[in-house]
Amino acid sequence: MICAGRVVIVTGAGRGLGRAHALEFARQGAHVVVNDLGVQLDGSGGDDQPAERVAEEVRALGGKAEVHGADVSDWEQARELVDFAVERFGRLDVLVNNAGVVRDRMFVNLSEAEWDQVISVHLKGHAATLRHAAQHWRDRSKAGERVAARVINTTSGAGLFGSVGQTNYAAAKAGIAALTLNTAAELARYGVTVNAIAPSARTRMTEEVFAEMMARPDDGFDAMAPENVSPLVVWLGSAESGDVTGRVFEVQGGEITVATGWGRGPSRDAGRRWQPEEIGPAVRDLLAEAPTPEPVYGT
């Protein structure tokens, strides 16, 4: 019960990873606000039943659950979601940003609408909820309260390494990684930690991209089950994780990996302005000394 009494918002919690997170938080004693629009994978339609079913599952585990159908890509609705959690439970302790959509397309065929939709739901949807949650926590901190708030964002291997046919998704997820680093630095003074996960699991969004990995085993450990990701998310949402912030964790099956991200590599300083004809040899020397980049998914 490492999250006993903590109030948690999980976005995109009607299915897949979000549902698994909500249920694990409930098992660990948290009160959960289940946020989901119930849309199809392409963002069309809408149905409140997936979120309601998850809320019932939370209650069946002995937890408290409320449902809110905010569109997290809408700045005002994201504020309403945070306000709803505070009104129903008295405060907010944890924000799990999980909601997302995909519009996979080779970049040369990508439409403006497909770019905007993915950036909006993933990147803006993370930023909007976090912005309003951060204000709530700042206000509590300035009022003299000791805050132990947690944010868990959802990036992706596509955002860390790239993924062929997913330029919009990869760009959004890379932005989420940067959002995580920056807000972790800014919000630490208020008692807030911000981390991100890059999960690999069987969901509607990944079944085509990782088709060869999606088969369920006949017996034994199912490494692609969404439930494998949730224990890390719940621990990051606990008070115990207060010394961990600004980190990105890859997680698949039973494996957790710390992603080290961009770092400064070899350099050359001419001590003066470089001449164009000098650049080629210098750059090639630097690249020969630098680590080989991780390959882009799909290459």
Rank of each mutant, 00 (worst) to 15 (best):
D36G: 06
D36H: 03
L37V: 07
L37G: 06
L37A: 05
L37T: 03
G38D: 00
G38I: 01
G38A: 02
G38T: 00
G38W: 00
G38C: 03
G38M: 00
V39T: 14
V39K: 04
Q40E: 14
Q40L: 13
Q40W: 07
Q40T: 11
Q40H: 12
Q40V: 02
L41V: 15
L41H: 12
L41T: 15
L41A: 14
D42G: 09
D42Q: 12
G43H: 02
G43P: 09
G43S: 03
S44R: 15
S44K: 15
S44C: 14
S44T: 15
G45Y: 00
G46F: 00
G46E: 01
G46L: 02
G46H: 00
D47T: 11
D47V: 10
D47S: 15
D47R: 11
D47E: 11
D47C: 14
D48F: 02
Q49C: 05
Q49H: 08
Q49K: 13
Q49L: 11
P50V: 00
P50A: 00
A51R: 05
A51Q: 07
A51V: 08
E52F: 02
R53A: 08
R53L: 11
R53C: 04
R53T: 09
V54M: 11
V54Y: 02
V54S: 04
V54I: 13
A55H: 12
A55Q: 14
A55V: 14
E56M: 07
E56D: 12
E56W: 02
E56N: 09
E57W: 06
E57K: 09
E57D: 15
E57F: 00
V58I: 11
V58N: 06
R59M: 11
A60Y: 03
A60G: 15
A60T: 12
L61I: 01
L61P: 04
L61E: 01
G62V: 09
G62K: 10
G62N: 13
G63S: 08
G63W: 04
K64A: 10
K64E: 12
K64N: 08
K64M: 09
A65L: 10
A65I: 13
A65H: 07
E66F: 05
E66S: 12
V67C: 03
V67I: 05
V67Q: 00
V67Y: 01
H68N: 15
H68Y: 14
G69L: 09
G69C: 10
G69R: 12
A70W: 06
A70G: 13
A70C: 14
D71C: 10
D71F: 01
V72Q: 04
V72H: 00
V72N: 01
V72A: 03
S73A: 15
S73N: 09
S73C: 12
S73M: 09
S73Q: 14
S73E: 13
S73F: 07
S73I: 08
D74V: 10
D74R: 12
D74P: 13
W75Q: 13
W75G: 02
W75N: 14
E76D: 12
E76K: 10
Q77A: 04
Q77C: 06
Q77K: 10
A78I: 11
A78G: 03
A78W: 04
R79L: 06
R79I: 03
R79V: 01
R79H: 07
R79T: 03
E80W: 02
E80R: 14
E80Y: 02
E80Q: 13
